[in-house]
Every structure is written in C-alpha cells, then in structure tokens.
Design a protein around this nucleic acid. Structure first.
Lengths: 230, 230
DNA sequence: CCTCCTGATATTGCATGCAAAATTATTTAT
DNA sequence: ATAAATAATTTTGCATGCAATATCAGGAGG
C-alpha cells in the first residue's frame, strides 16, 4: 500500500519556523514597517503561538538582519537605509554575475527551459501591468539562475540577501519606462543563458542589478531618521 | 563629568547571545565535532544557562549554518562535507576578489598600513612555525581587507561564510611548502594593495582562495557518512 | 540469531510563571 | 505650570513544568 503524499509531510512544522515565516512576510510586505516595535503579547495573540517560539523566531530574524534586538526593550523591524540597500544590491550583483557564469556552464537544458517558462509567465504579468505578479516571477527567475549555478552556498547566501531586499522591491514603484527596460534586459539575459554566453551574461546581470539599485534607491521613502548623527 | 567608557558596556549581555558565542567557539575549535548531538540537558549544565536561552542559541546557529535542527530530535553540529567546503570557499574567493578591488579604491593609507602591520605579525608566526598564530593573523588580514572595502554588507556576508569555515582552517595542517607559498602570496597581495593595483589584487586573491580550497580539501578528514545514500 | 513488538526512559517542543527592567501614570515640589 | 520624583503598569528575560515524541531495553516469536 502506497500512502505517500509528497507535499503533505507528516512531520509537523516547528512553531518557531512558522512564526518566523509569518513575520518575514509581514515585514516584507510592509505590514510591519521599519522601526515598528514587535510587541510579544500582541504578536502571540495575532499568530496564535506562545511567547517561546515567537521569541525564537525573533532571534532567527535578527540573525537574518530583518529585525533588531534591543536588550530588555524587545525587537523592532530593522531600518532599511539607503546605504545598506545599495551595499546589499552591490553584493547581490556580484553574486548574480557569478551565478550567471556558473549557470551557463552547469545548468541543464531542461533547467534553462524552466527559466524560460518563468520568463514568459513574467511577460504575461508585465503585459497586464500586474506589478506584484511581475515581481514574483522576476524574483523567481533570478533565484532559479542562482540555484542552477549548482552552488548551494551561493544560493543560500543570495537568498538571504534577497530576503532582506524584498521589502524594497515591494515598495519600488517602477516607472513604465524602467519597467519596460527591465523586461528587455531579462530578454537578453535569457538569450545569453540559452546561448551559454558566459561573458555576456556576466555583463548583463551586473548591469541589471545596477539598474535595480538606482530605481530601488529612487523609490525609497524618505527616512524619518534622516537627520540623525552624521 | 564624563563617564563614558567605550568598550565597557553597562548593558548586560543576553544569555542566548553568550551561549551562541560559546557554542560557536566549541564548534569552530573542534570540541564539538560535526554530527555531534547537542544535548540540551548536558549543555545547560555545561554552559550554566537554562534551556530557553540555549535553545534560542540553537536557532541562531542554525540560521548561521553551523548546526542543523532535526525536528523533535534536537540539534546536531552540521556536517562540513567537502562539497559544501569547496562551495563556500568558492563564494568567499569571489567576495574576496571583489573586496580587494574595492579596498584598492577605498582604503586609506592608514588602513593599508594597518594591514601591513598584521602582515608582519603574521610573518613572525610563520618564521616561528606557529601555525595557530599564523592562522589568526592570516584570517585577520583577510577580514581587514574585506572591511576596508567599505561595504558593510559585504563584510558581514564574508564574515558569516568565514565563520563556518574556521573549523576547516583549524583542521588544516599545511605542508611547509604550501605554507611558504601562501605566505609569498600574501606578500604579493600586500604589494598589490599598496600599489592599488586593482587588476592584480583581484587575480591574486582569486588564486589565493583557490589554493586554500585545495589544501583545505586535502586536509579534510574522511567523512564517516561517506557511504550514505548517493 | 535476527526481527518485531512492548514498555520504560529520556528528550524535545511549547506554554506558563516569576523576577528584573523599562515604560507610563501620578504625585510632589518648586 | 513645569519638572522631578515616585508609584503603578507593562514588558521583557529567563527558568521551569507538562505533554508529545523519540530513543532505548527487554522479551516473544520466527
């Protein structure tokens, strides 16, 4: 008798993990804005878990850089200042370019086709003007490229940096022009990947991230703490 | 009245942080070997903290990749398999090269001299054949280069990867020849940095890490789980 | 002798309780 | 009335308790 049910694991998910995921979403999607205090009593009620797993989730998110722990004063959503944003995107650009090279060398044709499929789905959202859907697939494509580079550490590192940046992407409200350009860049990236053109994909991905950087910075809300100690 | 005492903070360190630091040391220095179970009762006694902060520390270390959480079955020190080791060093090599470029552009002369000082201290340990001391300064130099690149995210990312690798470095038992070569490479790296030769430092750092990789792999103990499901 | 079952023990996951610290509200003094 | 001091309340940090799960030991059956 085969009772296997793949994606319906018997193993119950640890609560701290579920809590961390939920909080991550809340932060990334802007329901919890930068600087907001994370009240334990409130969140335990809201998430339906007790303080212990919630506090464990805080520690995880702090390690990831999404929240900041103030000893004896709880946790707050970490600030996403322009400096950090640009620094992160810079590093991601380097990793992205590296991943592109590796993917050109290591990805299977099936994997490239998988990316192509995602690309077309993304184009569909672009055509409909659905920014959220577009971002989702845009992100998925970049992650797949990094994944198919075949270096798990690279993938995890990228993923982590990316996680911290998702907030910015949600905030980013592209101009139609920039959006069109980005889509075009993706066309070229896919072409270079298909052609396994190492040099070209490196250049494309570097530029792509650089463009992302400038548009993300432009979209960043004016920070409240602008005048803090220089 | 000035009562400031810079690095003597009044704020008491959270226990979970202290526990995480202690565990990290134990893992890095090999007191807790890869695969070892982290028994809560035992460690609470050993570290003098209760289970709550200890378990919080587990979550932090798991996020950092040093331990692995097995739901309902506790935590184990994560395996440092050759694949992961080489993948990590590969990524670090890329970051190192990137950092070298940035450092050439951004580091002040004083900072380069600081690195030079560390370099000479390292040479002293090399001359005495003190491997542990050598590693310490070797590490410090690389971290300084990344730090003086002036990108905090890059620094943190590198630091994290480096942390996971320190175990391997402790194990590594260089041949005299390889050791001499490494020292020579450092000479050249310092020279390129002083000359602010971007192209050269990138090449040197890439090679340097590649060499590290091969010697680290050679020094890796034969994994017990070698025959596990392919 | 090995395998499978059953009970005993140990260990983990999570909730809760209590004390210390921080925050807010209230009072007192100038 | 404003500011300082003090009291009340909230919130955090950590320890512990209890139930669920996993591990181990012993014995029955093959």
């Amino acid at each position: 008798m085969d009772i296997s049910q793949e994606s319906n694991p018997i193993v119950r998910r640890p609560l701290h993990e579920a809590a961390a995921d939920r909080l991550r979403d809340l932060i990334v999607q802007g329901n919890l804005v930068a600087g907001a205090r994370l009240n334990e009593r409130l969140l335990t009620a809201q998430l339906g878990v007790s303080r212990t797993p919630l506090r464990e989730a805080f520690k995880v998110l702090a390690t990831e850089g999404l929240v900041e722990l103030l000893p004896n004063r709880g946790a707050i959503v970490s600030q996403l200042d322009p400096v950090r944003l640009s620094e992160t995107l810079f590093v991601m650009g380097a990793l992205d370019a590296l991943a592109g090279e590796l993917a050109c060398a290591n990805a299977t044709d099936a994997q490239i086709n998988e990316i192509r499929a995602l690309h077309y789905e993304m184009l569909a959202y672009h055509a409909r003007g659905d920014l959220a859907g577009y971002f989702k697939f845009n992100q998925a494509i970049h992650l797949k490229i990094v994944k198919y580079a075949g270096n798990a550490v690279l993938y995890n590192t990228y993923r982590q940096l990316n996680g911290a940046m998702q907030r910015a992407r949600y905030m980013a409200n592209l101009s139609q022009e920039r959006w069109d350009t980005a889509v075009h860049e993706h066309d070229e990236i896919l072409a270079a990947l298909s052609a396994r053109d190492v040099k070209r994909i490196r250049a494309l991905l570097s530029d792509h991230l650089a463009h992302k950087l400038s548009s993300a910075l432009a979209a960043l809300p004016v920070p409240q703490w602008q005048g803090r100690a220089a």
